[in-house]
Design a binder for these strands. Structure first.
Length: 108
DNA sequence: AGTATGACATAGC
DNA sequence: AGCTATGCCATAC
């Protein structure tokens, strides 16, 4: 399993209405320092990957969220059911996805 | 093939 | 408590 594959797998397993951080994915991927790679993977992520469910530690996407942009980012998450804070950031306190086990009732 | 940078995060000062 | 420096893997030049 390649690093990217793990990241893609984890990202694809993020349940709707939930978000996770690069660092969390990186940690789940094996190294908590892979956060940068996660971002790189997101940039290289194929269509269909809910990269909008992946946010930075601040609860918001970076300025380089192509090609949709940060504007649609918030809309996408709102459509997913993710509550936003007045700060314009995602309420990680309520939607932080801590890993497959956090929503995996039977991921065998 | 090697250097530099990156959609980030953590640790030290 | 905020900023600087470092770490990691992959992509681009």
């Amino acid at each position: 399993m390649d690093t990217f594959a793990r990241i893609y797998a984890l990202t694809a397993q993020i349940p709707p209405g939930r978000v996770t951080t690069y660092g969390q994915l990186a940690r789940l991927a094996g190294n908590p320092r892979l956060s940068r790679i996660v971002g790189c993977a997101m940039h290289a992520a194929p269509a269909g990957l809910p990269c909008h469910r992946v946010v930075n530690r601040l609860g918001g996407l970076c300025d380089a969220f192509a090609p949709t942009g940060r504007d649609s980012h918030r809309l996408l998450l709102e459509q997913e059911g993710v509550p936003f804070r007045p700060d314009g950031r995602v309420d990680l306190a309520r939607c932080m996805w801590y890993g497959p086990e956090d929503s995996a009732p039977g991921q065998d």
